[in-house]
Structure formats: structure tokens, C-alpha cells
Nucleic acid binder design. Structure first.
Lengths: 216, 216
DNA sequence: AACGTCATTCTTGTATACACGAATGTTGAC
DNA sequence: GTCAACATTCGTGTATACAAGAATGACGTT
């Protein structure tokens, strides 16, 4: 449990939303949440305020909080921005790479190789996350890293859906290889381009996303 | 005053921070704020929670809230991300431009022309803001627009400092012209490139920023 | 004189109580 | 039978009270 109940609740509710335990559009009753977590309404409200500021829920004055339902179109927009930010991170990483970052990228990359080779999509899901975070860190831009991590977190559930798609695992990993090559070669423009297409969801991948969302 | 005291306070405190009334590093005492605004501590705390989530202040458990002090380096990083996002907005705007957006851009652009011609840096400051917002909207990506507006807001005070620099007004406006041309010509890559350099702070402009920050 | 320990005080964190607006269900009229 | 007005209920918004941890200062010891 975090330092104080408010933050703990924020993380707890955030996780519940990102894992669809609290479905999009669902109403979040303060009293119910307070009882469920065995605390008073005060920290619950504080947690909700923060989630509202982050953009995960919407608090309509006097009318309670509801989980935001980002339709396929908005999710596409979020991936579009994510692609842009990751592209920037990649290009900076290529320019500024040092030994520490290089090793972190290599380590996470080879872990991806293992889980992709084993066809373990759950393991790959985590390793992939670490790989991308290694690139954010390698950008040496704290602000960019924070923005990337936050957006990455919000997109987590949809990323997971994507990995279920047939052949996506090996495709993803081979894209990683090219990205690593570009970064290690110091080719910022290439790293940017590759990351943009790796992260963005164009063409049939968007239809896949819509389909997998609809099937839930 | 907004719908509820909490939100009102959030905006109020946010403005106070962005206008340096609450200086970076300053401690924000809940009781003092409550007295100052004539409310109880509860809504003050809720406002602070939100500002913490946005990243304007930092709340250290049991040790109170302090206004975050983004040093020159971090501000540079923020402009770097802003440049990237605006570049994306510009490129999308060029592709998706419709009559409504076209008119909005034209209108705000000519207002910039007037204030720049008059050498009125305060007026230009506002008109420039509207011009950029018109481009965000023209991107037709709600999420991107929100992100841009939010970051733009956080960078507002530094932008203001920048405009004070000699000749910056006319330089800025002539860059606008090129940007408008690129967007209207449907040249997304060019719009992106121009916006990136327009928004980013490279070379001597960074030194200018540091200097103007130090002189406060 | 300097440092460490303890007590006091001050501020934050949480709970509870109360006020007010919104939602809802009921009753009456057309 | 339907719709509208009103009352009731329920949930949010704010204030206050209480608990607990951190900062501060005084006192004693080395």
C-alpha cells in the first residue's frame, strides 16, 4: 500500500479501469467505492479528482463520476500521438545513446526475443513494455519519458488486444530489431520513422482493433 | 466562479502558478490557501490533488505541496515535445483541411498580422495563441488538440518571455506565413517541418530564454 | 560549544456530519 | 392512460473534527 490511502486508491481504481473491471461508461459511486475499499469517502474523492485530471474518468458536477469510454476513433488518435512521441524518443535516443542505455535496450530486446520465440504473448506483453520504456529513458529527456510512460499506460489494454492478433508477435519483434539497429547506428531519422510505423495503427491493424474491441 | 469550489480553486491556483504569483519552489499551505479563498481545506486539497496529477505541483506525503520548479533544461524538453506535437497537428491539418478550419486559420493569422505590424507584443501574445489553437483544431484529432492545448497552457509564461526578445515578433509572424502556405497547399511534411522549428527553441533562443528567466 | 534526544507544535491525512442539488417515484388532473 | 407537479430519497459538495506524522525548538549531555 502506498504512502497514503488517497494515492493507493488512485492506483487501485486506475488499475481496475485499465483492466476493464470498471467498464467504460460505468458510474463510480463514491460511497460504494469507500465501502469496497474500507475507507471513508474523502480519500475516494481525492483519488477520483486525480483520475479526472489524468483523463481516465469524467466528473460531472453534482452528477458523479463515470469511466470515460474512448471509442475506436479516439483510441486511434491516442496511438497516433503515441507514435509521434515514441518517434521523437527514438530519434533522441539514437543521437544521445550512452553505454547504460545501450545495455538496457539490449537486455530488454533479448528478453523480447525469448518470449517472442516461445510464442508466449503474455510474457512478450511485459517484455515489450520494458523495451519501449528503455527507449524512452534512452532519449535522456525526462519530460518526454514521463509523457510516454503515461500515455503508454493508458493504451496498455488496447496494446494487449493487439498482441492477440495472429502473427503480430513475430512481426513486432522483427520491427524491434530494425529499431535497435537504427538507434545503435545513430540513425535518428530512421529510428523515428520505424518507431512511428511500429507504434501507429494503420490499415488493417485498425480494423483488427475495432473487431477485438467489439468482441468484448 | 465555476460549478463547484474545487474546480474554481484549481483554476485559480493554476493561474496563480502560471503567473508566478506562487513562485516555483514555494510551499502551498492548505490552511493558508483555505483562508485566502474563504473556503475550507477540503476543496483546497481536491484542487491540489488535481494540480499534482497535471504536474504543476508536487505533493510529498505528509510534507505538503510545493510548486514545481522546471529548470531551463526541463522547459527546453517541454518545448521539444510541444514542437513535435504541433508538427503532427500541422501535418494532419494540411491533409484534412476543410473550409471551417481554413477560415479560422486565416482569421487568426490576419489578427497576428495586425498586432505584429503594430508592434504590440501583448496583443500578439494572445493572437498567436489563437492562431496555434486554430491549427490544433484543424488537425481534426480531438485527443491531439487536447494535449496541445494543455501543454501550450503550461508553456504560456515562457512563451511570453520569448516574445519580449528583440525582433522576435516579426520573425514569428513571417514563420506563420510560411506555415499557413504549407498547410493551405496541403503540404503536410513541410507544415510539420516549419512548425517544429517555429515552436522549438534552438540555439540562441535557448540562451535568450535562460537569460530572461534569470533576470526575474 | 556542539550534538543528540525528547517534547511540543504545526500540518497533513482521514473520518464524519451536514447542506444542497439532482434524480426518481408517486399522486393527481386532464 | 399520459403527463406534469411535487415530495422524497439518494448522492455529491463542503465544512469541521479528530488522528497521526513531521518539523522545530529546548534541554541536557559529552
Amino acid at each position: 500500500m502506498s504512502e497514503n490511502v488517497g494515492r493507493w486508491l488512485r492506483d487501485e481504481i486506475e488499475d481496475a479501469i485499465l483492466s476493464y473491471e470498471f467498464a467504460p461508461g460505468e458510474r463510480l459511486d463514491e460511497t460504494v467505492l469507500a465501502n469496497r475499499f474500507g475507507v471513508s469517502r474523502t480519500p475516494v474523492r481525492e483519488a477520483l479528482m486525480q483520475l479526472d485530471a489524468i483523463g481516465l474518468i469524467e466528473i460531472r458536477p453534482r452528477r458523479g463520476a463515470v469511466v470515460i469510454d474512448p471509442g475506436p476513433h479516439r483510441i486511434y488518435e491516442m496511438f497516433e500521438v503515441m507514435a509521434e512521441l515514441e518517434g521523437l524518443a527514438g530519434s533522441l535516443a539514437a543521437r544521445r545513446l550512452d553505454n547504460t542505455s545501450r545495455e538496457a535496450i539490449t537486455a530488454t530486446h533479448s528478453r523480447c526475443e525469448q518470449s517472442a520465440g516461445a510464442g508466449d504473448s503474455d510474457a512478450y506483453y511485459y517484455d515489450n513494455e520494458e523495451f519501449h520504456k528503455a527507449i524512452y529513458a534512452a532519449s535522456r529527456s525526462d519530460f518526454l519519458e514521463e509523457q510516454c510512460v503515461q500515455l503508454h499506460r493508458r493504451l496498455r489494454p488496447y496494446r494487449r488486444l493487439q498482441l492477440r492478433v495472429r502473427n503480430r508477435l513475430s512481426t513486432s519483434f522483427s520491427e524491434h530489431c530494425a529499431i535497435v539497429d537504427a538507434i545503435f547506428a545513430g540513425n535518428g531519422d530512421e529510428a523515428r520513422r520505424l518507431l512511428r510505423t511500429h507504434v501507429g495503427i494503420q490499415g488493417e491493424r485498425f480494423s483488427d482493433l475495432v473487431a477485438s474491441m467489439a468482441s468484448r
